[in-house]
Amino acid sequence: MQYVKSGNTIALRVDYGEEILEKINEVCVKENIKTAAISGIGATKETEIGLYNMETGEYKREVYTGLYEVGSLIGNITEKDSKPYIHLHIVIGDTKKDAVHCGHLNRAVVGATSEIFITVFEHTIGRKFDEQTGINIFEF
């Protein structure tokens, strides 16, 4: 992993074999990032995606192993319990099966490289548990 900071934006490269969420968290801690927007592209070799079912309150998890192109990595960083709360969604494509998969990113190991921009927001946004939906929502 390497990154450079310019103004309120960080350009982050996550390298082969590294886990994306771990590296973003590392940058958040080093740079004291409380709130930000994230976007990125790249490739993964192991990806776990979740889809939340509001009726059951459970996440359906799927693991995709093999080389997948990241068509979109998008989300945000907020703060919960004084720690970075990284909320990302990902779209991955499998050219062999001509299939696309998307959802909440639980884990992604880079299969080539990942190029990510983190745009830092000057105000802190927290998270709170919402009884109606069963998820952690923005707390202003």
Score class of each variant (00 low, 15 high):
residue 47 T to R: 04
residue 49 I to P: 04
residue 50 G to S: 08
residue 51 L to C: 14
residue 51 L to Q: 12
residue 52 Y to I: 04
residue 52 Y to Q: 00
residue 53 N to R: 03
residue 53 N to P: 11
residue 54 M to L: 14
residue 57 G to T: 10
residue 57 G to W: 03
residue 58 E to P: 05
residue 59 Y to E: 05
residue 59 Y to S: 02
residue 61 R to P: 00
residue 63 V to E: 12
residue 64 Y to I: 04
residue 64 Y to F: 01
residue 68 Y to T: 04
residue 68 Y to K: 04
residue 68 Y to N: 00
residue 70 V to Y: 04
residue 70 V to C: 12
residue 72 S to I: 00
residue 72 S to R: 07
residue 73 L to H: 01
residue 74 I to W: 00
residue 74 I to L: 13
residue 75 G to F: 08
residue 75 G to N: 07
residue 77 I to Q: 08
residue 78 T to F: 09
residue 78 T to E: 14
residue 82 S to P: 07
residue 84 P to Y: 01
residue 84 P to M: 11
residue 84 P to L: 04
residue 85 Y to I: 08
residue 85 Y to K: 08
residue 85 Y to P: 06
residue 85 Y to F: 11
residue 86 I to W: 00
residue 86 I to F: 08
residue 88 L to Y: 02
residue 89 H to I: 03
residue 89 H to N: 03
residue 90 I to Y: 03
residue 92 I to M: 00
residue 93 G to C: 10
residue 94 D to P: 00
residue 94 D to N: 02
residue 95 T to P: 15
residue 96 K to F: 12
residue 97 K to F: 05
residue 98 D to P: 10
residue 100 V to I: 04
residue 100 V to G: 08
residue 101 H to G: 07
residue 102 C to S: 14
residue 104 H to I: 04
residue 105 L to Q: 06
residue 106 N to F: 07
residue 106 N to R: 14
residue 106 N to Q: 12
residue 106 N to I: 13
residue 107 R to L: 12
residue 107 R to S: 13
residue 107 R to T: 01
residue 110 V to I: 08
residue 111 G to Q: 02
residue 111 G to D: 04
residue 112 A to S: 15
residue 113 T to P: 01
residue 114 S to L: 04
residue 114 S to H: 01
residue 115 E to K: 06
residue 119 T to H: 07
residue 121 F to T: 06
residue 122 E to K: 15
residue 122 E to Y: 13
residue 123 H to T: 14
